[in-house]
Design a protein around this nucleic acid. Structure first.
Length: 533
RNA sequence: GCCCCCAUAGUCUAGCGGACCAGGACGUCACCCUUUCAAGGUGAAGAUCGCGGGUUCGAAUCCCGCUGGGGGUACCA
């Protein structure tokens, strides 16, 4: 199907009348620690806007990763790699970044300091910025005094109008200085936000923010504006905490003579009790959720819905669904509370209903290996433990809320012998020790010539046995369950027996009989008697 | 204190002037299924649409005020 010969269609194809403008967005974390879920959601929305919405609309969409490592004091070695790793695990891919490269690099701000210094100099030259020689101590003192007088704290602009002579004196004395932005003293600055519409700020309330620190590194405000312009960012999607300084950024673009990108300030993610989501409430870092056995799919689905909505009733969204349906227009402006419960529900749902058994098995294996239940190895179907783990996962996946639940739930399938358990568990309520013993004896007797592979036949046999003993089926099943698993809760008995295997089933029942006898002899006790009627 | 943002059940939300005595989901409770626990199914409770004024024939939906929650107020991002 080619249109090359269609003369009249050619011009339109080579030179579209209205070239849709490309959408270039960025996620710009600072490498100061682990990636917060809020940051992950910001990254997600950026990515969805560029790779999803923009591309669907026939525009170019690029997602860049930029590392904002301009704070030497908070820099954490290895944090950048951690962020790159976890974003990859989360499922995001970027077109340009410190690792991926790209035409607008470098993508690490510490490698762009010359650029910031040049731009600060430009602003100085044009009178849009000034050198401030105030010491941090003085600034602190000024703030303290203002607070004491119940005045709004802020820089008193002492250095805003120094004379040339004064400046020269400071410079020759090699006094350290910062470069501050010269904000208009009056008037107002409107900021247009894609989610909120126009927000108007009175310039009197805005400060002469520091652009270049005395160590020569830029602050966020300068680096951000310079980079976003140089990297041709079209849309800034960032956290709501940036709203207060957005007007300054707008003024900065104007001072440089640049067109400002569009802004969309994403709503904050709040903690269950209100306030910032912090350690006190539970996990906050993506790395922690990964370690706790959350699936990236579930996390993505949950995080997408925390602030974005498709139609109010659809809730299950795969990555592909989000790509196909996400629109910035449907992002909410109001903050949302992080609901650990709902996240768990999504995780459970993906584990039990979305992932294939093979996939789930592969993901569970590292957790089992970590707990020492299976041999470590690569996560692939070739792993020698795969065929052993798979049937166990099939049996227990419906009660797995996180992958990390696996070791506890599955231990007895992998260990040769059971961990010690309370023999009293072998005797169900309303049953006597002798009844339980009789049941176990009867089962033990029948086991050698029972084919556990045939669940239905085994069940029929056990039911008949219960009937002969005058027991309800459940009363026979429970002692067997406890004998074989060491606990009162397990998957269906016959599937459990099948997977554990005849050999271990027999030895565990024999052991249970032994312990039950011993237990009764040694402890004809009140506690045990009391639990039974 | 000052500046700013936000406001539908405990939580996430649908709703964008009349079809809403407000819909979905998590959570909670009950029942069903059942060999235990889950999962699953069915159903229920839960919202004076934060409050008060307007505008309108009519407001959860528009406007104003208040209250509440949150954010910012660094040579951190």
């Amino acid at each position: 199907m080619r249109f090359l010969d269609d003369e009249w269609i050619l011009p339109a194809m080579t030179e579209p009348a209205n070239t849709p403008s490309p959408v270039r967005v960025r996620f710009a974390p600072s490498p100061t620690g682990l990636l917060h879920v809020g940051g992950a959601r910001t990254a997600l929305f950026n990515w969805l806007l560029a790779h999803g919405q923009a591309r669907r609309e026939g525009r170019d969409g690029a997602f860049l990763l930029r590392i904002e490592d301009t704070d030497r004091n908070r820099y954490v070695p290895g944090a950048e790699q951690g962020i790159v790793d976890i974003l990859g695990w989360f499922g995001l891919v970027w077109d340009e970044g410190p690792d991926a490269g790209g035409p607008r690099g470098p993508y690490r701000q510490s490698e762009r300091t010359d650029l910031y210094r040049e731009h600060a100099a430009l602003l100085l030259e044009r009178g849009h910025a000034y050198r401030c020689f105030c010491t941090p101590e003085r600034l602190q003192r000024v703030r303290d005094e203002q607070t004491a007088r119940k005045q709004p704290p802020g820089y008193d602009r002492l250095c805003r109008d120094l004379t040339l002579e004064q400046i020269e004196a400071y410079v020759t004395a090699a006094t350290p200085y910062v470069v501050r932005f010269r904000m208009p003293l009056d008037g107002e600055t409107p900021v247009y936000d894609l989610l909120r519409g126009e927000m108007v700020f009175q310039n009197v309330n805005l400060e002469d923010l520091v652009l270049l620190k005395s160590d020569g590194y830029p602050t966020y405000h300068l680096a951000n504006v310079v980079d976003d312009h140089l990297m041709e960012i079209s849309d800034i999607l960032r956290g709501e905490e940036w709203i207060p300084t957005a007007p300054v950024h707008v003024r900065l673009y104007a001072a440089f003579g640049w067109e400002a990108p569009r802004f969309a300030h994403l709503p904050l993610i709040l903690a269950p009790g209100g306030g910032k989501l912090s350690k006190r409430h539970g996990s906050t870092a993506m790395e922690e959720f990964r370690a706790q056995g959350y699936l990236p799919e579930a996390l993505m689905n949950y995080l997408a819905l925390l602030g974005w909505r498709f139609d109010g009733s659809t809730e299950m969204f795969s990555k592909e669904d989000l790509m196909a349906k996400f629109t910035l227009e449907r992002v909410n402006a109001s903050p949302g509370t992080f609901d650990y419960n709902k996240l768990r529900w999504f995780n459970q749902h993906y584990i039990n209903h979305v992932l294939t058994l093979d996939d789930l098995t592969l993901r569970v294996m590292p957790f089992l290996a970590e707990a020492g239940l299976i041999a470590p190895g690569s996560s692939s179907p070739e792993h020698l433990e795969f065929s052993r783990v798979r049937p166990v996962v099939a049996l227990l996946k419906d009660r797995l809320e996180t992958l990390a639940d696996a070791p506890d739930l599955m231990g007895y399938f992998f260990q040769p012998d059971l961990e010690p358990y309370d023999p009293a568990l072998l005797v169900p309520k309303k049953m006597s020790r002798d009844d339980a013993l009789a049941a176990l004896d009867a089962v033990a007797a029948v086991l050698p010539d029972t084919d556990l592979e045939n669940e239905e036949a085994t069940e029929a046999r056990f039911r008949a046995l219960a009937d002969t003993l005058g027991l309800k089926p459940g009363s026979l099943f429970m002692p067997v369950r406890v004998a074989v698993t060491g606990r009162t809760q397990s998957p269906g008995l016959f599937g459990t027996l099948r997977v554990i295997g005849a050999e271990r089933v027999q030895s565990r029942i024999a052991m249970a009989i032994k312990r039950l006898r011993a237990w009764t002899a040694e402890e004809p006790s009140a506690a045990a008697a009391g639990t039974r009627v």
